[in-house]
Design a protein around this nucleic acid. Structure first.
Lengths: 235, 235
DNA sequence: CGGCGTATTGACCACCCTCAACTGACGTGG
DNA sequence: CCACGTCAGTTGAGGGTGGTCAATACGCCG
């Protein structure tokens, strides 16, 4: 049994959950997996309803959101390439998933994947470790939301995006100090992730630009000129 | 092999991680487990250092905190009876644990417990599900920190504490609408959990009292007169 | 009683929100 | 080709929520 071409050229490869699967299991999984494409802003899955599939992000950025009855919204997580989307084992996902940029997912049947975890302790172990990391990331963000100033929040977010987006690009681009990338989030989304208003985000970005730490050509492209300074501003 | 008395009378029993262990495993675990007592405010484990043991909370409340270099602090989680404390599998815990009230833990050796999980899929499964719930709880709190007003924040926290503390008491006390309990957190700690200042918390509690939703005899005891109204204020 | 730590209360102020106008990019249609 | 609408982002002016600082009250204990 050989691995299908789709898996052999998988962009998430080494970082994905499935890469630890033994060859024959991966081969079988690849047979039931299928890809889905979403355009920016497109709805992926809803809050409070159990989805019959899970997915791995192959490209693009997916946001997880929570919404209050009166419409206030908070982004509670971002998924980049190789991240896993879905809530296995019973409970339904308490948040909605939406494509922040154009995105591609590799999807597999819910029951199938849960069986796979039961049958492959290594897979379950890896998933568990990822979930533990998600807890840590969420709690890190709690510190940001609860204690940081608007300036620190925006600096932290740009730093986070720079780090994660850099991986999607060539290694050489990552090495050279002035990091150059396209923001995967709109101002509105940045605000929703940071617990701020869009105007505040806009003003803080202006200040960062004025201080020479970043350089923004048009609204969506950013050059981080001084990563250290930015990290320092993010505390 | 019989189960030791310590486990037979365990206050966390049905809700603890270990309750799904088969008898003989539990029996062996109980032999290596030992209890630790902490007084309110006492330090339990540090951030960034790997502990050589894990624990289950038997009584009291434990807080998990993150601190910035300049001293700003955020509580990122609360542990009540039957909750698990520790970060298995490699990574060190990125937050500190401290007793919020007098607390008692049931502790077991790190390596031993990790082996136990490897040997008992049911245990690992339960731990995984709990971890998933922790992610959800952390993200719920992100919504609170990012989007709720001071009034909603305080109402949410009192509601949360009322729910969790009620379990520690008699079932009859839970049933009757006016819930009566002792706050496990000081004003400072409430503020650190809510991303507010102590004075703001104090003022909001006063407003809740003025509106008749709660009733506070001395600083640390609270009676929730109208649970529905409180839930409504928390959104 | 005095001392200490925690909580409350008040006065003031700053940061961020709110509202509103404006700009620029893009697409459509006359 | 330009007029027009739309949408995202920017900028400005003003206001409110929650922070800051300081004084006071309260509970606890020696």
């Amino acid at each position: 049994m050989s691995i299908r071409r789709t898996c052999a050229i998988c962009p998430a490869k080494e970082d994905s959950l499935c890469h630890i699967l033994p060859k024959e299991m991966l081969s079988r999984l690849s047979r039931v997996a299928h890809h889905r494409r979403y355009s920016a802003g497109q709805f992926i899955m809803g809050a409070g309803q159990q989805q019959d599939w899970f997915g791995t992000v192959l490209s693009g950025v997916v946001k997880l959101t929570k919404t209050m009855v009166d419409g206030r919204q908070q982004i509670v997580g971002l998924l980049f390439a190789s991240d896993f989307l879905g809530r296995p084992f019973g409970a339904d996902s308490p948040y909605a998933a939406e494509a922040a940029t154009a995105a591609e997912l590799c999807c597999f049947d819910r029951a199938y994947f849960e069986d796979l975890m039961r049958g492959c302790p290594e897979l379950k172990q890896l998933f568990l470790e990822r979930t533990l990391n998600e807890v840590d990331a969420a709690r890190d963000w709690m510190l940001l939301l609860g204690r940081k100033s608007a300036e620190e929040k925006v600096a932290s977010l740009i730093l986070l995006m720079a780090k994660r987006m850099a991986r999607e690009m060539d290694a050489e681009a990552t090495a050279s100090p002035p990091v150059h990338f396209a923001l995967p989030l709109s101002r509105t989304e940045m605000a929703e992730y940071l617990g701020l208003r869009i105007e505040t985000v806009s003003r803080q970005i202006r200040r960062l630009r004025a201080s020479g730490v970043i350089q923004a050509e048009n609204g969506r492209t950013i050059v981080v000129r001084d990563v250290c300074k930015l990290a320092e501003m993010a505390e």
